[in-house]
């Protein structure tokens, strides 16, 4: 792939910011944590896409993953909310100002267990944000309990044997009519970056489930959320190039092997079906892909489903161009004569 323009020699992006302007505080996660790799990708992508930090909000819930917004984009407002409740906070925040970009960082416990209801309702409302699940199948902060995305039959030192089936957050997103469902692996920086760039262009909730191994509590080789398993079983379903609309890019793709999808902002995502079977615009095919992957215990990565046709929340709510949070007193408080008229009607 050759789509992404290399940063100019000066080290400044299109809005004149250096990569340093996108950095966060030093991480306090365990050394080697997959989450830190994802934070590095977000920094890189925000820089590459020339996102103005003051125009983006960083949202999270509770857990190891939810700490990470402190570790990237220091110049963006951040909100580390309550466990499983990031979707509702983001919904309200983006209703109040629908012109902001938003990236949410959640974990498998935060999304798959305590927050599953809010997650699905956020997707249903099509809240415009990039929603990342840093998925390791385990509760790290409380020292190693199973999460709802843990594999059936998996063993953990303290929790023992997991006899319940795993919740697949991608499948849950798909069922809730999510227009952008993707999965990747924290150890695959190139694919994570590609998917992140596409996700930022999506007008609606973009769900990105990133398998992010826990080096402390879930890196046993029999877990699908371990490095060893991930590297050995990863099946990349499609490779695509992300092309920002402002640049004319020629891509070295063979005709007949690719499908172009125009994103809301005019950007084009070009998908390559490596196995020649998966069409990411086919919802049934996406469900079958995930179901089959469960049966074969495979890790499917790539863009699983894309649908740009749904309106996002702000459009559904008929919001004005000026964000609600910035409306003036004159725009918000009706006149005295309006009150007097209402009063007269009640007399």
């Amino acid at each position: 792939m050759s789509a992404i323009q290399e940063p100019p020699a000066s080290g400044l992006n299109l809005i004149g910011l250096s990569k340093n302007d996108y950095k966060g505080k030093a991480s306090t996660l365990c050394k080697g944590c997959g989450h830190d790799s994802i934070s590095a990708r977000i920094i890189s992508v925000a820089y590459d896409l020339s996102i103005r930090p003051s125009r983006l909000i960083k949202m999270s819930g509770i857990g190891c993953s939810s700490k990470t917004p402190a570790y990237f984009l220091n110049q963006s407002h951040g909100f580390n909310g309550l466990h499983g409740r990031m979707p509702s906070i983001s919904t309200g925040a983006l209703l109040a100002n629908h012109t902001m970009a938003a990236v949410g960082i959640s974990g498998d416990g935060d999304t798959g267990s305590i927050g599953l209801g809010q997650f699905k309702h956020m997707v249903r409302r099509n809240v415009p944000m990039v929603y990342i699940i840093e998925n390791n199948g385990v509760y790290g902060l409380t020292k190693g309990q199973f999460s709802a995305t843990a594999d059936e039959g998996q063993k953990l030192k303290y929790a023992g044997l997991n006899e319940l089936p795993a919740i697949d957050v991608c499948l849950e997103a798909l069922v809730a009519d999510c227009g952008f469902v993707a999965r990747s692996f924290a150890g695959d920086p190139r694919q994570v970056e590609q998917l992140l760039k596409a996700a930022f262009s999506h007008n609606g909730t973009a769900v990105l489930d990133i398998i992010s191994p826990c080096v402390s509590f879930n890196d046993h080789e029999d877990s699908t959320k371990s490095y060893a398993w991930g590297k050995a079983h990863e099946e990349i379903i499609n490779e695509f190039s992300f092309i920002p609309a402002r640049q004319e890019i020629t891509v070295d793709y063979a005709e007949g092997e690719s499908v172009d999808v125009t994103m809301h902002d005019g950007a084009i995502v070009r998908l390559r079906k490596l196995d020649g079977k998966h069409d990411p615009t086919d919802r049934y095919a996406a469900m079958r892909l995930l179901e089959d992957a469960h049966r074969s215990q495979e890790l499917i990565t790539g863009l699983i489903y894309l649908d740009e046709s749904r309106q996002s929340l702000g459009e559904i709510e008929h919001l004005p161009a000026t964000p609600l949070a910035q409306l003036s007193e004159e725009q918000l408080r009706p006149s005295k004569s309006a009150l007097d008229k209402l009063m007269a009607e009640m007399m």
Binding site: S90, L94, H121, L324
Partner: peptide
């Protein structure tokens, strides 16, 4: 010039207004 959202429960209802209040609405 408003948004009134019927939330999925009261947890989400207050979560939404906390997000909106933080944003300045």
């Amino acid at each position: 010039a408003y948004a009134i959202v019927q939330a999925e429960d009261e947890l989400a209802a207050i979560g939404m207004i906390v997000g909106a209040g933080w944003m300045g609405a």
